[in-house]
């Protein structure tokens, strides 16, 4: 299997099986399993698909430094995806690995919100999406540090540091481009207007959110709206951009497996090798 970062020593499997992990009764809770698996896939798939989209800039960035920065951001996100999907696979306990989940599920099994699967567009739209998602991701990981699941909390503490760095960078660039030239301002406003109707999905609760919240594992999606909104308004204010005065919860369904047509094309590229040459390793 290709390269989700892993304990790839020659004895990786034995080492992974024996690795000591903090005791966590949630991981083996049969009643909770379907919801927890879905929720972990949401965390993992959001990071994986945004990471893949961001990696599409590799070799195409508007400046060498931005190209490198985007590739590094993608790497962080794919690292987070590996941690979440590894835990999802363990919870599912059907013998699948993180790689199986990434490379062998079809679009309807992916649980990412739709905002991350949209095409990159120009660099302005790419950075605006990164900011909108980072600001949500940051608040989510901050809350997850206090999760009743030690396994979830330790991933959140690890990923949270990297996402804080990403949010700093994305905020800085959104402000510089928003409060920049006439052209950059117009593009950033267009990006925000375009992405806005996809942001509501991040804060829309369903039965899965309810179940993990009841177990104390994660906050309800809706609980993150307030802090996200505060960050959004502060940064957009500095960026001289206008937050749209219309509903944000228009395009829903990604978290339940209903996706835009764009996800299939991402998977066609991302999964090609494992589909064409099942079990290929390098």
């Amino acid at each position: 299997m290709p390269s989700l970062p892993d304990m790839a020593t020659p004895e990786a499997e034995r080492l992974a099986q024996e690795a000591a992990q903090p005791a966590d009764p949630h991981i083996t809770d049969v009643a909770l399993k379907p919801a927890l698996f879905d929720w972990l896939c949401r965390m993992g798939d959001g990071a994986l698909i945004l990471g893949h989209r961001t990696s599409e800039w590799c070799g195409h960035g508007p400046a060498l430094e931005e190209d490198i920065a985007l590739a590094n951001t993608a790497l962080d996100l794919i690292g987070h995806a590996a941690l979440w999907l590894e835990l999802a696979a363990e919870v599912e306990a059907q013998g699948r690995t993180a790689d199986d989940l990434a490379y062998l599920r079809d679009a309807m099994r992916f649980r990412n919100p739709q905002i991350v699967e949209l095409p990159n567009g120009d660099i302005g739209r790419t950075l605006m999406r990164e900011f909108l998602y980072d600001a949500w991701h940051y608040e989510m990981l901050l809350k997850l540090r206090d999760s009743s699941s030690p396994r979830v909390a330790e991933i959140a503490a690890k990923a949270g540091k990297e996402v804080a760095y990403q949010l700093d960078r994305a905020s800085d660039l959104v402000i510089r481009l928003g409060d920049g030239t006439e052209e950059s301002h117009a593009r950033m406003q267009a990006a925000l207007d375009h992405l806005w109707p996809y942001t509501g999905e991040l804060f829309t609760d369903d039965a899965v959110d309810e179940a993990v919240a009841e177990a104390g594992i994660a906050p309800r999606a809706s609980e993150l709206q307030g802090p996200w909104d505060a960050t959004l308004r502060e940064v957009m204010g500095e960026a001289t951009l206008t937050v749209p005065d219309r509903r944000a919860d228009v395009h829903l369904g990604g978290k339940q497996g209903r996706h835009t047509e764009h996800l299939g094309y991402i998977l066609a590229e991302m999964q090609f090798l494992q589909r064409a040459y099942p079990g290929a390793e390098w």
Partner: peptide
């Protein structure tokens, strides 16, 4: 412990330690 979640050197470091 890994430095960065996605650091590609992590697997290589484990091999070097081994």
């Amino acid at each position: 412990t890994p430095t960065y979640s996605g650091c590609p050197a992590t697997a290589f470091i484990n091999m070097e330690i081994e």
